[in-house]
Amino acid sequence: MNGIVGQLVLKDWQIMRKYVIAYWLGGIASILIAIFGGEGLGIAAMILFVTALGAVGIHAIMQTIVVERTEHKLPLIMSLPVTIREYTLSKIIINLSIFTSVWATLSGASLVILFAGEEGMPDGMLPFVCIVLVAMYFAYTIMLVTALVSNGLGATIVATVVGNIGTQMGLWQLVDLTGIQSTIDGPVAAWNSTHAGILLVLIAGILVLLLGSVYLRFQKRDVL
């Protein structure tokens, strides 16, 4: 990371850090509720978990990319000795860092809680839960690249809605696949080619989306 990219990332982190900590605490709270709240609060814990994970991604994208343009902070930043490429890199780094740190922490914690011990979910569900978590990252990536390429509020909101609905519908379809159905209720986590294939497609999709957005941004000749 060169000097100016680092400074831009640090600037965005300083602006976002209090919100990130709040969302992270919200996610941790959801996990604690799941552990200690009993069955009655299970749904509340899940809603809080999904909200914290979704909100941190949306908030960071809106604050660091969309609002920077719509509220005319971009001329200030682009008057600095920075190119559109360095600016784009800084936005990808800060957004992926924020989301990945919260996503990884909460995903890891939730996997432990869901599957550790005798009273957890059947281990057969583990591959599908992993797919759900990676799909959430995929939906987030759709939002991020749309914001990066369009810089527009409308397009980013549409991408958020379409990405989330599309991901949920996609997951509903996946549950019916034989490769998923055959293992989901089992006592052990039985990974098969269906699980691996879906994860591979999602991860490849995330990489293609990110690289594509970088390519498109690098083609732009006008910043304002």
Partner: peptide, 19 residues
């Protein structure tokens, strides 16, 4: 532009600060 912008101060009427 990198080399040039090190020595240029730019202000535009629509420029905003981080509120």
């Amino acid at each position: 532009q990198i080399a040039a912008k090190r020595d240029i101060g730019f202000i535009s009427e629509d420029m905003r600060l981080f509120e």
